[in-house]
């Protein structure tokens, strides 16, 4: 009995720890954000009307506080199409970039998984190596490469592919280059993990049962790597939707992603409530792909 209790304690704490972490560093701050999103701007410090002031005391105070809450900020998000366009732009950019990364990342991951066992860790390190340099510095490096007399234009002209320098900076192309470059490892690693697990014997079995190599790839390799595809897509899509730095530094300023709009509201307009509402809606939007992924996984686990 004693021994059991001694062991049960730490085990229970270990089980609770991640939830505590989530509550402390996600749910609580998020509750603040939700609260601010239901408030109104004010010339004050902090710059919004403090809505829930329980201190006033009692049921009446609570009711009064409730009455002050407003959904005005959310109504604004729908009525002013700056926000809707920003959301759409973010989703589109994330979708296109994720698709490009899947197309580039899958062959790379496949190649890595087919390397002789002793070269695989080397390939893995090569994929991770860029992380040794700060993300921001690498984006600035891209500015350098893409600028008018940068490395890219010089190379293209030396190879006589173009006659005069091409404008790369402040275009969507530059932004996609930056995003794909930055997020590609997050696509490759889960893909590699699922492809490395694939048993070559299964491909032989497929060949034995009448599949050509291409057929075996489609019918065996691809379906078995789907969980890796799902993980890679989520790992890239979700943070790209909220991406701020890369579009801000590499893309033009005519069309904003939602992260940039949020930044504008927060720092330039000092409208914390609208910025908070933007963040809340963003989170709700991002829950959708997560739920879809979970549903798909459940269906795969079940029996069709």
């Amino acid at each position: 009995m004693m021994a059991r209790r001694l062991f049960a304690r730490p085990a229970r704490i270990a089980a609770i720890a991640p939830y505590l972490w989530m509550a402390l560093f996600f749910l609580l701050p998020f509750a603040f954000v939700v609260k601010i999103s239901l408030s109104q701007t004010a010339i004050a410090q902090p710059p919004y009307v403090p809505v829930i002031a329980i201190a006033e005391g009692g049921w009446a105070g609570f009711k009064a506080a409730l009455a002050q809450l407003s959904l005005d900020n959310f109504r604004l998000l729908i009525s002013d199409n700056i926000y809707v366009l920003s959301y759409l732009r973010s989703l589109t950019v994330a979708a296109i970039a994720t698709a490009i990364m899947l197309l580039i990342g899958y062959p790379i991951a496949y190649g890595m998984a087919r390397l002789p066992a002793r070269w695989q860790p080397v390939a893995m390190v090569l994929v991770i190596v860029p992380f040794w340099t700060s993300f921001l510095i690498r984006i600035y490096a891209w500015i350098n490469i893409l600028q008018h007399d940068g490395l890219l234009n010089k190379t293209l002209m030396a190879l006589r592919i173009v006659r005069e320098p091409v404008t790369w900076l402040s275009t969507d192309t530059a932004m996609y280059i930056g995003i794909v470059y930055s997020y590609l490892p997050f696509m490759i690693l889960p893909l590699y993990a699922s492809l490395a697990k694939l048993d070559i014997g299964l491909l032989e079995a497929a060949a034995d049962l009448g599949c050509s190599r291409l057929k075996a790839f489609w019918l065996v390799t691809v379906p078995i790597s789907l969980p890796g595809v799902g993980a890679g897509v989520l790992l890239c899509f979700i943070p790209i939707v909220g991406e701020f730095v890369i579009p801000d530094l590499l893309a033009g300023s005519d069309r904003l992603m939602i992260g940039q709009t949020l930044w504008l509201e927060f720092f330039t307009n000092k409208d914390w409530p609208v910025a908070s509402a933007t963040a809340v809606v963003l989170l709700a939007v991002l829950l959708i792909p997560l739920l879809v992924y979970q549903r798909l996984q459940q269906r795969q686990l079940g029996t069709d």
Partner: peptide
Amino acid sequence: QNYALFPH
């Protein structure tokens, strides 16, 4: 020898 059944 290891059956090589398709897990999916």
